[in-house]
Design a protein around this nucleic acid. Structure first.
Length: 591
RNA sequence: GGCCUCGUAGUUCAACGGAUAGAAUAGAAGUUUCCUAAACUUUAGAUCCAGGUUCGAUUCCUGGCGAGGCUACCA
């Protein structure tokens, strides 16, 4: 049982005995550095049930805990805060515990499953910086949920049909001269993306031409032959025209190969893939069902709507008057289909940008109204845009940061910096390349994940490759240093009387941090926020660095202390590794 | 117009309604016979404005101001 639970029970009992009142929860926080103590009980919330002076209550509780809880050695009260000093023996026990537990802070997998959707790209252009934020968030949240005991399915819905891919297909057909990824040496998604751009260029020329002939902007856009041809192609695709479908399959195939390469480089993966070409007709049956249940209603023109005005939202269309589906129809159908495919799923996380906040609000509400049990556990992992110092990313203005280019750039920077330092000159060039990749990617991932998902990020390429301060490489570096200590220390025998150690304040500070790791993981899972894990890890690392600088590890004479400090470094190292695992960031043995 | 999100040091980020609002960067000043100086130690600097709720508000509520997003029988 963790300490917080033990204390909670005792405090509840104490309040019963001393004041005859019942309390259901107790608030803890790590004691601030300026006060004496390790863990702090906040008295103020108790005032609702216990009438009295917070200081007196704190004193009484403190005395009770000191007398009745072995782990409590001292206490003091400042205003409404009861600061508890824990005994060294508690810390030593706790530490032995985490050292023996390879899965410290992680909860074993239970039966409840969640589905996490992320990435979900269009197939007409390569992945960019926005997708990177999406992928990193989705992947990390999936890992964090796993660590909190959930079974997790990672999935995506690939937007593989529609006018956008037809544009690329058309441009390739007309201007491509049979180019393929093999013939050009280009990544498939890049090649297809180039034709999407080509389409746009030609299309614009046509518009200009038509405008010169005296047509209005709107007329020109609608009448441009390129656009008409693209629309025709979409019709053919929907009709199942063999040539069109074959072209579509070929070009999408190229794109998927390119995407997989990017995902692989980024270190993310998926358990299943859903394709919009398979799901875009789903949902109509569910609408029918909803009509019968009275969740939806039909207007006189035949269109079907959901009235959400009672919930503070608008009326939302779910089926057009001609009986065809809209986006919402499809999403309703897809969600239901997914649970059919994975019957143990009891909740879904959608990693999608915040411009779709309203859409998901409506979707979740409709699914709830349709009465699905899992609809109670739907979450839109909404994230803000990624801005550049030069402003917003716009594909038309060529200000998009390409995912592959960015990863390569970060790796290159890691290389430059590492070479300047020259600490790894004895590694083979393969080992070096792998290391540069780990560091460059670590910098990128940490930079993005440490920010609260819902906030917009200002992505400054210069700053993101910074390796000092609150950055991924700084933490990776600390991990590497710990590994170095362990190599130097070799295998130390555990002295018998280790329990009698008196801890150095720096050691206590470190253990205090470590103590809160399991809590952080649960908190992060509950709020779907990798940023919590990132910031916790950084705090831990800073604490370790200070410890490392001020308390000799290998220099100490005393075998007990030496053993303990080395073992403590091991524990910190493994927590860093675990925490970074939750963020999808690798740690190097050396750097 | 209506709805949603955000507003914290020069800059980039923290802070379950809790103690003197933390870090990092950039600025100033130090620390390498010692396990990795990509480090450590000092130092200076911030809650958009006005009300309200209460023991206590960066956090919750109301009204402004500023930034962004949504507001299609598109996806």
């Amino acid at each position: 049982m963790i300490l917080q639970d033990i204390l909670t029970n005792k405090i509840i009992t104490a309040l019963q005995e001393l004041y005859g009142v019942t309390l259901d929860s107790v608030e803890f926080q790590a004691t601030r550095r300026d006060f004496e103590g390790d863990i702090t009980v906040v008295i103020f919330p108790m005032l609702k049930v216990v009438k009295g002076n917070p200081v007196q209550i704190g004193e009484a509780l403190g005395a009770y805990l000191e007398a009745n809880v072995a782990q409590v050695s001292k206490f003091n009260v400042v205003k409404g805060f009861l600061n508890i000093v824990l005994s060294d023996s508690y810390y030593l026990d706790f530490f032995t515990g985490i050292n023996n537990d390879a899965n410290f802070g992680l909860i074993p997998q239970g039966t409840e499953a969640m589905m996490v959707e992320y990435s979900s790209p269009n197939t007409n252009k390569p992945l960019h910086l926005g997708h990177i934020r999406n992928n990193l968030l989705g992947y990390s949240v999936a890992e964090i949920l796993k660590a909190s005991g959930k079974k997790v399915y990672k999935t995506q819905i690939i937007n593989d049909r529609g006018i956008h891919i037809c544009k690329s297909m058309l441009a390739w057909q007309r201007f491509g001269n049979g180019e393929t990824p093999q013939s050009t040496g280009l990544k498939g998604d890049k090649l297809v993306g180039n034709y999407y751009v080509k389409f746009d260029q030609e299309y614009k020329k046509e518009i200009e031409h038509l405008k010169e002939e005296g047509k209005t902007e709107e007329e020109s856009k609608a009448q441009a032959p390129m656009m008409i041809a693209a629309q025709e192609m979409l019709r053919k695709w929907e009709a199942g025209d063999a040539d069109t479908v074959a072209l579509w399959e070929m070009m999408n195939g190229w794109v998927y190969e390119g995407f997989e390469e990017t995902y692989h480089k980024l270190g993310v993966d998926f358990d299943s893939y859903y394709y919009e070409s398979d799901t875009y007709l789903l949902g109509k049956d569910n609408i029918e069902e909803g009509l019968q249940k009275g969740v939806f209603f039909k207007k006189s023109d035949g269109s079907v709507w959901c009235d959400l005005t009672a919930d503070g939202l608008d009326e939302k269309i779910v089926l057009r008057s001609d009986g065809t589906a809209v986006y919402m129809t499809q999403d309703i159908g897809t969600a239901i289909q997914r649970v059919k495919d994975h019957p143990d799923v009891n909740g879904m996380i959608y990693t999608v940008g915040n411009e779709q906040d309203y859409h998901f609000k409506v979707l979740f509400l409709i699914l709830k109204k349709l009465g699905y049990r899992w609809a109670e556990h739907l979450y839109h992992l909404s994230y803000g845009m990624v801005d550049l110092p030069s402003g917003k990313m716009k594909s038309r203005e060529g200000t998009v940061v390409d995912a592959d280019d960015l990863i390569d750039e970060m790796t290159q920077t890691a290389k430059t910096i590492s070479e300047e330092l020259g600490k790894i000159d004895d590694l083979s060039s393969e080992e070096k390349d792998e290391l540069y990749r780990i560091i460059g990617l670590g910098a990128l991932k940490y930079y993005i994940l440490k920010v609260d998902p819902k906030k917009r990020i200002l992505f400054d390429p210069k700053e993101s490759v910074d390796f000092q301060g609150n950055t991924g490489p700084f933490i990776q570096y600390t991990y590497a240093r710990i590994q170095s200590i362990l190599r130097k220390a070799g295998a130390l025998a555990k002295p018998a009387e280790i329990e009698s150690l008196i801890l150095h304040p720096k050691e206590k500070e470190l253990l205090k941090q470590l103590q809160f790791f399991p809590e952080k993981v649960q908190e992060a899972a509950a709020s779907y926020s990798p940023a919590l894990i990132a910031n916790y890890t950084y705090e831990l690392v800073k604490e370790f660095n200070s410890f490392y600088q001020n308390v000799p590890i290998l220099g100490t004479e005393d075998e007990k202390e030496k053993y303990f400090r080395v073992a403590l470094s091991t524990a910190v190292g493994s927590v860093i590794k675990t925490a970074f695992g939750l963020l999808g960031i690798q740690v190097p043995e050396r750097m």
